[in-house]
C-alpha cells in the first residue's frame, strides 16, 4: 500500500505545555482517517506541524515516499485548518484564482470545484458576505483545486447548523468515494464513526489508539432484556459462562457478552429454560462509550 504520510515520535512543546507527545502513525492511500480527541488534545497542532505552519520540537515526519520536501509535498495536498481563511474583500472566484496561482493550477479548475460544492451561482459575491457554511464549503473547494492526493480537514463541521453539517459530510463521503485519501480531525465521535474507516485517538497529545474504527469497538456487545420472571432470569444469566457481567436497572437487565452470540440463539436458550422474554435487544457499545472509556482510563 502506498504511504502518504509517516509521523515518527513527533513532539511539540509550547513552553511548559507539551501539546503533542511522542506521536507516531502512518497514513496510507485510499482510506479515510480520523484524528479523534477532545479539545486541546493536540489534533490541530499535529496537523499544523505536518503542514509547515507550526515548528516541531523533536521527532520527524515525511510526506509520500520520504524524498519529497514538505514544500513540494504541499502542492499535492489540500488542507483547511480551523476556520476558513480567505481575503474578505475578494469574491469567491478571485480568492480561488489566487490559490490557483499559488499552487500552480489552471484557472479552469475554479468553476469545476465551485460547482462541486454548490457555490457556482454565488462565485462573484465577496467572501465577507458568505455564511459560515458557505465559507467552509468554499474552503473545501479551495483545498480540492489541485486534485490533491490527500485532503486534510480540521473540524470541518465546527459551528455549522445541522443542515450545514449534513452538506459537509455528504461532500466528504462523495470525495472519499472518488478515491481521495482523507484525514479528518474532529472531537465529534459520530462524525468519525460515520465517515472514517481508520482512527487515531489522542488525549493530551498522546496516542491512545490507532487502527480500524470497527476494531476499536472490540467487545462482543450486550443484551438488553426484560422478563416477568426477573429473578430467575438473573440466576440463569449469572450461571452462564457466556456472560461476563449482569446489571439490573429497574426492570431492565443488561447482560454483557464474553463471546459472540446471536440474539435468536439466546432467545431459544431462554425459552428452553422456561423463561419468556418480553424485551430483547442486542447492541454493541457505541464509539462514544469506547472513546470515553479510552480517554478516562488512562
Amino acid at each position: 500500500m502506498d504511504t502518504i504520510l509517516t509521523i515518527n515520535n513527533l513532539t511539540k512543546k509550547f513552553g511548559y505545555l507539551t501539546a503533542v507527545k511522542d506521536l507516531s502513525f502512518t497514513i496510507n492511500k485510499g482510506n479515510v482517517y480520523g484524528i479523534l480527541g477532545p479539545n486541546g488534545s493536540g489534533k490541530s497542532t499535529t496537523l499544523g506541524i505536518v503542514l509547515n505552519v507550526v515548528n516541531k520540537t523533536s521527532g520527524d515526519f515525511s510526506w509520500f515516499d520520504g524524498n519529497t520536501t514538505t514544500h513540494d509535498a504541499l502542492k499535492k495536498v489540500g488542507a483547511i485548518i480551523e476556520r476558513p481563511n480567505f481575503y474578505p474583500y475578494m469574491s469567491a472566484y478571485q480568492n480561488l484564482k489566487l490559490v490557483c496561482k499559488i499552487k500552480g493550477v489552471d484557472f479552469s479548475k475554479v468553476d469545476e470545484k465551485l460547482e462541486l460544492v454548490g457555490l457556482l451561482d454565488r462565485k462573484d459575491s465577496k467572501f465577507q458576505t458568505y455564511s459560515l457554511g458557505m465559507k467552509q464549503r468554499l474552503a473545501i473547494a479551495s483545498a480540492l483545486l489541485n486534485d490533491p492526493e490527500i485532503l486534510i480537514l480540521d473540524e470541518p463541521t465546527n459551528g455549522l447548523d445541522p443542515q450545514g453539517i449534513h452538506q459537509i459530510r455528504t461532500l466528504i463521503k462523495q470525495i472519499a468515494s472518488n478515491g481521495t485519501t482523507i484525514l479528518l480531525a474532529s472531537h465529534l465521535l459520530d462524525e468519525v464513526e460515520k465517515v472514517c474507516s481508520h482512527v487515531v485517538v489522542l488525549r493530551k497529545g498522546e496516542k491512545l489508539y490507532s487502527g480500524r474504527v470497527d476494531e476499536m469497538i472490540s467487545s462482543h456487545g450486550f443484551f438488553e432484556l426484560k422478563a416477568e420472571k426477573q429473578s430467575e432470569l438473573i440466576q440463569v444469566l449469572e450461571a452462564d459462562a457466556n456472560f461476563s457481567s449482569v446489571k439490573t436497572e429497574g426492570e431492565l437487565i443488561t447482560a454483557f457478552l464474553n463471546q459472540p452470540m446471536d440474539a435468536s440463539v439466546f432467545n431459544k436458550l431462554m425459552f428452553d429454560k422456561g423463561i419468556t422474554l418480553s424485551h430483547l435487544v442486542k447492541r454493541k457499545e457505541s464509539l462514544e462509550e469506547q472513546f470515553l472509556k479510552l480517554t478516562n482510563n488512562q
Binding site: L51, N52, V53, H71, L74, K75, V77, A79, I80, I81, R83, N85, F86, Y87, P88, V99, I102, K103, G104, S142
Partner: peptide, 15 residues
Amino acid sequence: SNKTIKQNLIDGLSK
C-alpha cells in the same frame, strides 16, 4: 489579521 498567511503557507507557498 485575516490569517491568510497560514492558508498561503498551507496552499504551498514557502515562508
